[in-house]
Amino acid sequence: MRPFRRSILFATAALLICGAAPAFAKPWTELTAGQREALAPLAKEWDALPEKKQHYYLNLARRYPSLTVAGKQRLHERLDYWSKLTPEQREQARQKYKAFKKVPADQREQVKKMVRDREAQKSASSGVPPAAPAPK
């Protein structure tokens, strides 16, 4: 086999291996301590998750160390809820989030205040702190 053809075959094989490698499923016990901390709410169901979803959550966990304490707490509170949403619901949330970011800052603050008031009312009436609701 001539060197040029051999090098092309090697390059193709390398591409296939590199492309497929990150998609291999990883058991919970093989995650790093940091990844396990970030994805703690998914510990029970982790091993049953499809490879693609595991890769998605590992991508989220990658940025976990850079989050604030409040951010980490919110992530943990919402991760289970988020994982149970359908792909369509998640896509809808992304679109709405992007649209909300384009709203002028003062209007955005007004909406945030309304939501905060609503959450405070809910928690006052129920006697428990606000948590992520179950998906519909």
Binding site: W82, A93, F100
Partner: peptide
Amino acid sequence: SEIDLAILTDEMPVDVYV
């Protein structure tokens, strides 16, 4: 995953966007 992380750590509750 970057935008999802932003949603999951945002001040606003997730259900507002869903």
